[in-house]
């Protein structure tokens, strides 16, 4: 297993490196950040000075090597716009996104699994059919529209919850987060729900399909024939078997939540990484974009690794081993 993890980390390093190359040169192709940075009435000398200060006067290959040297020492370069280190900028925005992603993942699990279980165990009831119809809506309605509707309903019409911003934060266990305050939680609820909606639907459908399939397996009937209570049959014999696909999908989705909650963050003016990425892209702030995507790749690799390890915990038939490169 150690060999497995080491190998996976080496592969991760390679992927991160390739990502940096693609993004670094890709952003360069899109446009010239100097046009965005300098006021139109600046004179030629000033433009030249700025270009030199940003290091954009050198050949692109050299710029990249310079960047790599920096990365080796933990320096991802300075943001063209803010003049601050890109990494610091990203880390500053990260907690907001992480808390949003975590809460929405939690919602997907806590709502999706019970609803899916119910729909799977009692497929003929009206409620179950309602749950399934709801999950289809959750899938197909676009996030931005649902977000607007949520704001409309809960913030404008009912006035129960705030519509924008992160709210108060507090420090607990050394982590500053809006999870620890009432105001923070009330700000968190709507964007998290908006982000979670697709995943809740996904988990409902996965759980239901798993239940429907597993319920007719002999091992469930055998468990009943042993005289076990229905709750033990469902919570142990059934759940442990259907969790595997759910964990896989949720792992991948969690990566997606962290990296690409752009739409939700924009609608709810949530000061997270997604918003930072979109702003940086629009302003061709290359150091931030490159650093951001490298970090996201790292996230994905780590999440996948965790999912693989969880597999072997959930399913004894899975043994972690190298399947070659």
């Amino acid at each position: 297993m150690t060999a497995f993890i080491i190998r996976r980390l080496l592969q991760a390093a390679l992927v991160v490196f390739l990502m940096s190359v693609i993004v670094f040169f890709g952003v360069n192709v899109i446009g010239d950040p100097v046009d965005m940075l300098i006021s139109p009435d600046a004179d030629q000398a000033e433009i030249a000075r700025t270009i030199q200060a940003l290091g954009l006067d050198r050949p692109i290959g050299e710029q990249y090597l310079h960047f790599l040297k920096g990365v080796a020492t933990g320096d991802f370069g300075k943001s063209f716009i803010f003049g601050e280190p890109a990494l610091k900028l990203i880390l500053h925005h990260m907690p907001a996104t992480v808390e949003l992603a975590l809460v929405s993942l939690l919602m997907a699990i806590l709502l999706g699994i019970p609803l899916g279980l119910y729909a799977g165990l009692y497929p003929d009831r009206k409620v179950s059919k309602g749950i399934i119809a709801g999950s289809i809506l959750g899938f197909s309605l676009p996030t931005f529209w649902v977000g607007l509707m949520l704001i409309m309903l809960f913030a404008v019409v009912l006035g129960w919850l705030p519509s924008t911003g992160r709210g108060d934060t507090a420090v607990f266990l050394g982590i500053e987060s809006s999870l620890w305050t009432r105001d923070g939680l009330s700000h968190l609820f709507l964007p998290a729900l908006n982000l979670a909606l697709t995943n809740i639907s996904l988990v409902i459908r996965l759980t239901r399909a798993g239940v429907r399939e597993a319920m007719h397996q002999d091992y469930i009937k055998f468990a009943r024939a042993k005289g076990l209570s229905e709750s033990r049959v469902v919570s142990v014999h059934l759940m442990k078997n259907i969790l595997i696909p759910i964990v896989t999908v949720l792992g991948l989705e969690f990566g997606g939540l962290l990296a690409f909650s752009v739409v939700t963050e924009s609608i709810f003016a949530w000061p997270g990484m997604g918003k930072l990425l979109i702003d940086s892209l629009l302003q061709l702030d290359r150091p931030v974009v490159v650093a951001y995507l490298m970090i996201i790749v790292l996230f994905f690799v780590v999440i996948n690794l965790v999912v693989d390890i969880l597999y072997s915990v959930l399913d004894p038939r899975v043994r972690l081993k190298d399947q070659g490169a």
Partner: peptide, 14 residues
């Protein structure tokens, strides 16, 4: 009760 297919009667993950 004892079932027909021993491959299927025991829960694979327990």
């Amino acid at each position: 009760m004892i079932f027909q297919d021993p491959m299927m009667t025991l829960n694979p993950v327990l």
